[in-house]
């Protein structure tokens, strides 16, 4: 049985390929960026998705399984955002360290207070998430909370670098607090602004900035906008006008543009996560650019 010999050889010949740096598998770019802020050179971050991909709909690609296999820590949003693909990666990776319940599995959504929890779970309501709306990264206060917990997790997994993680967290907190104070002042004109959103992707940002969502382009969460529904929204906006229609960089441009043309409001394309625009190259840039885009709509 020659093939079996070959197999046995391969099992033993490839050792753990030990890396000094902690391998982090970040499901979304914002957690990848946060892990880099907190871990510096002690971590090696792989971001599984980009700002131009819909985090609900990712293929469980072979490359992702290979990366999950090597991960020491998986940092994901949770709250069922990745339910269509992450379970496959976890199961097929054969990696015991990052299974749910282990220190190597970190869910950001567990660190924050969730909004939009559905009272009734029924698919007739579209793609609703039992735990609440998972797009928590659009509020910088959530980022701060997740940073706290993620840093603690890094220390738990990699105690050798505890001092480094503590120092970097303190440094990040200082810079982040200063930035939040700045954003708070910059965002003052946005308070109370009426907006339309393409997908319910921004409840945390709405909550943070005091934006008022008056309509959603998707007839139900996760259901692509239809022309009929867009027309209804346009008619509704005649009675209660809004300043802007918001969409994330990954979403199709057409529904928001259609509405902008028919209801006379401006389109605001938000980076939504790190990498979603030229300015949003890190977490600070993400919020700098998001606010800049929103402020354009007020002027």
């Amino acid at each position: 049985m020659k093939p079996l010999h070959l197999l046995a050889l391969l099992f033993t010949a490839v050792p753990g390929l030990a890396h000094a740096a902690l391998n982090i598998f970040a499901c979304e770019p914002e957690w990848g960026a946060l892990a880099t802020e907190l871990g510096g050179d002690a971590v090696r971050v792989y971001a599984a998705t980009t700002a131009f991909q819909d985090p609900h709909r990712i293929e469980a690609r072979p490359s992702l399984i290979a990366q999950m296999r090597r991960a020491d820590l998986a940092v994901c949003t949770g709250a069922e955002l990745e339910i269509g693909w992450l379970p496959i990666l976890l199961r097929q990776s054969g990696n015991a360290a990052i299974q749910p319940g282990k220190p190597g599995y970190f869910e950001a959504a567990r660190q924050v207070a969730m909004l939009d929890k559905p009272a009734v779970l029924d698919r007739a309501q579209g793609d609703v998430h039992a735990a609440g709306n998972p797009h928590i990264q659009t509020d910088p206060r959530n980022i701060a909370r997740v940073a706290q917990a993620l840093s603690a997790r890094l220390i738990e997994i990699d105690p050798d670098h505890a001092t480094l993680y503590r120092t970097r967290l303190a440094d990040f907190n200082t810079r982040w607090n200063a930035a939040m104070a700045r954003w708070q002042i910059q965002a003052a004109p946005l308070k109370g602004m009426n907006i339309v959103v393409q997908h319910q992707a921004f409840p945390y940002m709405e909550n943070w900035l005091g934006l008022k969502r008056v309509a959603v382009l998707e007839p139900k969460p996760g259901v692509e906008p239809t022309l009929g529904h867009l027309a209804e929204v346009a008619a509704q906006l005649k009675a209660a006008p809004a300043k802007a229609v918001l969409r994330a960089a990954y979403q199709s441009a057409r529904p928001a543009e259609w509405l902008a043309n028919h209801a006379g409001l401006s389109v605001v394309v938000l980076p939504f996560t790190v990498g979603g625009s030229d300015r949003a190259q890190d977490l600070f840039g993400l919020f700098d650019d998001s606010l800049a885009q929103l402020l354009k709509a007020v002027q």
Binding site: Q111, N173, Q184
Partner: peptide, 29 residues
């Protein structure tokens, strides 16, 4: 809450609250 936050926005960012793992429904319904 918002009123309280806007009063103390600069000095009291949310970091101070040790959140921990907030109670959530099971991972799957």
């Amino acid at each position: 809450l918002q009123a309280a936050e806007s009063n103390t926005a600069v000095t009291l960012p949310a970091i101070a609250t040790p959140q921990g793992e907030t109670a959530q429904p099971a991972r799957n319904a």
